[in-house]
């Protein structure tokens, strides 16, 4: 019983059995989180540094809570208030922190591949908490966990990823995770936000949101990431909301109940309207809750690799 990898850099590197193991372990941690005392002593000999080179609320708090509930020691690092702003390189920053005997690194960076690069240079286990437009593995794992929790096994389920597929690391990780678990995936959005050749990952493409919603059991609505678009890819947010926004009218027009997900933060009124985001079909807050359990599972399972790294 062990993961096949030393780091959690992306879902791409995981075997289906790894994903199953993480989800199964997460279910037990979810039970821990329902107890009066939501803390176990498992990682009391482990120190974890949270290296965040990019802003984050949910993921960072979620990781920090996961670490604390496993009794690990945590150190937080934000690039804006550190020596990175004096020009220190990534490797130097990480090596300096690790020389203070840190066992694991949770890392978010705006450059795709940054954690993979760091993994070649340091000894600690690395968990990717989002790298550029590449992957966000723990988000995909918690999405899969939340889908399973709501509608059962992923096998054969139909999941639509809607919105900015091009700039979304959540989308890419979800595609890998869902297809490895036997779900069917369709991406849907304006043609300018869908990468060319995305079909080669084994997913379908739809440009009509109604068609996608009719087809799917679960709609994972992604955030429009204006901060990553360096040239205009659609004419206005209002137009995007008109053609690709998920709202009550469009959901009522397709005669079936579907589960609505969103990785947060929501642009209310753009990709998702408030009445849908707050409806009973939305499992957005369950996703956040499950995030802690899934991250505890990832930390726990990678801590088992600690001795092999020295």
């Amino acid at each position: 019983m062990s993961l096949s990898v030393k780091h959690l850099l992306g879902i791409k590197d995981l075997l289906p059995s790894d994903i199953e193991l993480i989800l199964k372990t997460a279910a037990q941690f979810k039970e821990v989180l329902q107890r009066p005392i939501k803390k176990v002593p498992t990682l009391r000999d482990t120190s974890v540094v949270n290296l965040f080179f990019e802003n984050s609320t949910r993921t960072r708090i979620s990781f920090e809570l996961a670490e604390k509930r496993l009794s690990a020691d945590t150190i937080n690092f934000a690039a804006s208030s550190s020596s990175v702003s004096k020009g220190e390189t990534l490797i130097d920053t990480a090596k300096n922190i690790l020389s203070m005997k840190v066992d694991m690194v949770v890392m978010r960076h705006s450059a795709s591949g940054a954690p993979h690069f760091l993994a070649q240079h340091i000894n600690a286990s690395i968990i990717n908490a989002g790298d550029g437009i590449n992957e966000h593995p723990t988000q995909a794992l918690l999405d899969s966990f939340s889908i399973q929790e709501r509608i059962g096994s992923l096998k054969g389920k139909k999941v639509a990823l809607i919105g900015d597929i091009m700039h979304s690391r959540v989308a890419l990780s979800n595609i890998y995770c869902l297809t490895k678990m036997g779900a069917e995936v369709v991406v849907c959005g304006p043609p300018t936000l869908i990468p060319k050749h995305i079909e080669s990952l084994g997913v379908g493409v739809m440009y009509d949101i109604k068609e996608a919603l009719k087809w799917c059991d679960v709609a994972n609505v992604l955030r429009i990431q204006l901060e990553r678009q360096n040239k205009p890819l659609f004419s206005s947010l209002r137009e995007y909301a008109m053609y690709y926004g998920v709202n009550k009218q469009v959901l009522q027009s397709i005669d079936k109940e579907i589960v609505i997900m969103h990785p947060g933060p929501i642009n209310r009124g753009v990709e998702l309207s408030s009445d849908v985001a707050d409806s009973k079909n939305a499992i957005i807050l369950d996703q956040v809750e499950n995030g802690v359990a899934v991250r505890m599972a990832a930390l726990y399972l990678l801590a088992g690799k600690k001795d092999q790294m020295l």
Partner: peptide, 22 residues
Amino acid sequence: LDITFYRDDFNEKGQLLQVSET
């Protein structure tokens, strides 16, 4: 009751212990 997370040897043999249901 599963006690895996409370064991002092959860990682001693290089293999994690299987987590069971509580």
